[in-house]
Design a binder for these strands. Structure first.
Lengths: 200, 200
DNA sequence: AACATTACGGAACAGCGCTCCGTAATGCAA
DNA sequence: TTGCATTACGGAGCGCTGTTCCGTAATGTT
């Protein structure tokens, strides 16, 4: 029934009745503000209050908590991903590019409280977040890795980009809290080990 | 007042009236069983139920959750700490000793679900646990590290045992869950990097 | 036998993530 | 202009968590 859609267009699945997305952007802004203030594990109620909306609104726009986090940090993850090829082109050596990119990534993770933890499933229900990070950054990391290590010697299969990326992420967990803990230095040392594995 | 403590001994602060610690050992056994089944983040109620005691009993014996975890794993941490000097004496090279010890430590962390995470404050209120691990294992790790790396070259201060230990711990987070994630390999690569830093 | 002392058990509190539904706002149609 | 279908909204409610607290029961001593 009701093919009498009158004129306009036969395809018009979203009638767009009711109030349009008024709060989506306000929500993202508020979430970003709360994340920097209280970390990515901040209570959902706090975000809702800051944005001046109810709980329901948050969960309709972002069915799971991870999706909110992803939405907030999408721009920065994207720019981090795009930095990979650019660094490879600009740097004098592939190794320098890899190290610079890792430093960039570490800085990103460390400055967002708890992001590194949420990245790999320690925090509950970070499915989407983990998947997004992996999907977007593993290829970038892989390209840098391939370029940086000598292809010679194949007695033992070298560690793959997925493991390197997760290793870097793990090393950044809790880095913002402990003063004596130097995640960036450890990451560079890990990379040294990874590259030494390739060479012989 | 009340120096009339009769005979026995003037110092006897614990009169030991009432039921003695009947449940302490049962508690530890139950906690250990639950930890292997559901990880160290298992609900306290689950531990209490398994042990057949009430919540109050747990929190009287172990005021904070960390202390219970520490008590459960004290033996294994201790044996891990003692393995350090022994490996150093038995191994052909100090590097081999360090690597073997790290493998031991990694195996310990990975087999206990969530222990690595609880080790460094990602899980809430793991103060005591973190302190105990650090206090007990940093010296051991430091000894192995000193022995394994050449003392030459001092342009840049090498990374300290605290950071190496925390780095190893962090790399083990979530290792039991992700099939493709190879924490042990990453730890060995990190060590490669650390040792390469010392040499030149 | 009666008591003081201690351990015990579980109800109760505060916090969390997430769901659900009654209500209010909105744009199109008559 | 008026009415209505459609959609977004807000927050109470549910189940779960860690932790505290207190009435009660068991115990060794007097």
């Amino acid at each position: 029934m009701a093919e009498a859609q009158s004129a306009q267009s036969p395809v018009a699945p979203s009638k767009q009745v009711g109030r349009p997305r008024r709060s989506e952007q306000a929500l993202l802004d508020a979430a970003a503000a709360v994340f920097v203030a209280s970390g990515v594990d901040a209570p959902v109620r706090e975000i809702a209050a800051k944005a001046g909306v109810g709980m329901g609104t948050i969960y309709r726009h972002f069915p799971t908590r991870s999706e909110l986090v992803v939405a907030v940090y999408r721009h920065q993850v994207e720019s981090c991903a795009e930095a990979g090829p650019r660094l490879l082109a600009e740097s004098t050596t592939p190794e320098a590019a890899l190290r610079a990119w890792a430093a960039l990534f570490v800085d990103f993770l460390v400055t967002k409280h708890g992001l590194a933890g949420a990245l790999q499933g320690v925090s509950a229900g970070s499915d989407t977040l983990h998947a997004y990070f992996i999907d977007r950054l593993v290829p970038v990391c892989g390209t840098l890795l391939e370029a940086a290590r000598e292809p010679i010697d194949a007695t033992t299969p070298p560690i793959d980009a997925y493991n390197v990326l997760k290793g870097i992420g793990n090393l950044c967990i809790g880095a913002a809290g402990a003063a004596r803990y130097e995640a960036a230095a450890l990451v560079q040392l890990l990379i040294s080990g990874v590259l030494a594995q390739g060479a012989r």
